[in-house]
């Protein structure tokens, strides 16, 4: 019964109006004993959704091998419950839009210049870009990230981050866990917070009235 000899790929429906839950349930209940790859397209799925899917699959002895998506939120939720997840980089423009909705209208070209980095940035390493930086991974203590625009980290920021290094006061630093050694925005410098941030909530740092403040991120 346990022999898995097949693997399959499940692609989420394109249209945003269709009910993916029913679509997938119908599909999954028709198969069993195989490994599947999930292609979530540009769907934004939460941890709850993935738990639902996982339970459904476990009942049918199906293993989810990997999750693909162009939405960073989906990736984060998938990895949060321990699924292998990958960015579908073809449509990565969506990520920029999703994270920073105010920017798209100003300059459409900007999205092309987001620097993507997947993986941990380790001590002594330095990541620099003239524009926005998006990191899918941790920034370890001793590492430096500096961007002309915003710094977005889907992971922990434990090192030094510099946003708006060319004097852009409206730049922001966003991270799932913000506990940096030092924060720099434009020409302002601040030491990182001493206490541990609350877990599970993304935070952002930006300049308010000439000071760098850390607040829960607005999504």
């Amino acid at each position: 019964m346990n022999s898995k000899y097949q693997s399959d790929k499940i692609i989420f429906p394109k249209s945003l109006t269709s009910n993916w839950r029913r679509h997938l349930k119908d599909y999954i209940l028709n198969i069993r004993n195989i490994d599947i790859e999930l292609d979530c397209g540009d769907w934004e799925l939460t941890c709850k959704d993935f738990t639902y899917l996982k339970n459904l699959c476990t009942q049918r002895n199906i293993e989810i091998l990997s999750v693909k998506s162009s939405q960073s939120k989906t990736i984060i939720s998938a990895s949060a419950i321990g699924l292998n997840s990958f960015f579908n980089l073809k449509s990565n423009n969506n990520i920029g839009k999703n994270l920073n909705p105010r920017n798209i209208t100003v300059n459409d070209k900007k999205e092309d210049h987001i620097l993507f980095h997947q993986g941990t940035i380790r001590a002594g390493e330095r990541l620099e870009s003239k524009n926005d930086i998006f990191i899918f991974g941790d920034v370890n203590p001793g590492a430096i990230v500096s961007a002309g625009g915003n710094v977005m980290i889907w992971g922990r920021l434990l090192g030094i981050a510099h946003a708006g290094k060319n004097g852009n006061d409206s730049a922001k630093i966003t991270a799932m866990q913000l506990k940096p050694v030092q924060l720099r925005i434009s020409n302002k410098v601040a030491r990182g917070p001493k206490e541990n941030p609350e877990e599970g909530f993304a935070e952002e740092a930006r300049i308010e009235e000439g000071l760098i403040v850390i607040k829960p991120a607005r999504t």
């Binding site: 380790r122 001590a123 002594g124 390493e125 370890n140 203590p141 001793g142």
Partner: peptide, 12 residues
């Protein structure tokens, strides 16, 4: 740990 982190980066 910090030094190890640096070395891991170099090994990678």
């Amino acid at each position: 740990v910090r030094d190890a982190d640096r070395v891991i980066g170099l090994l990678n």
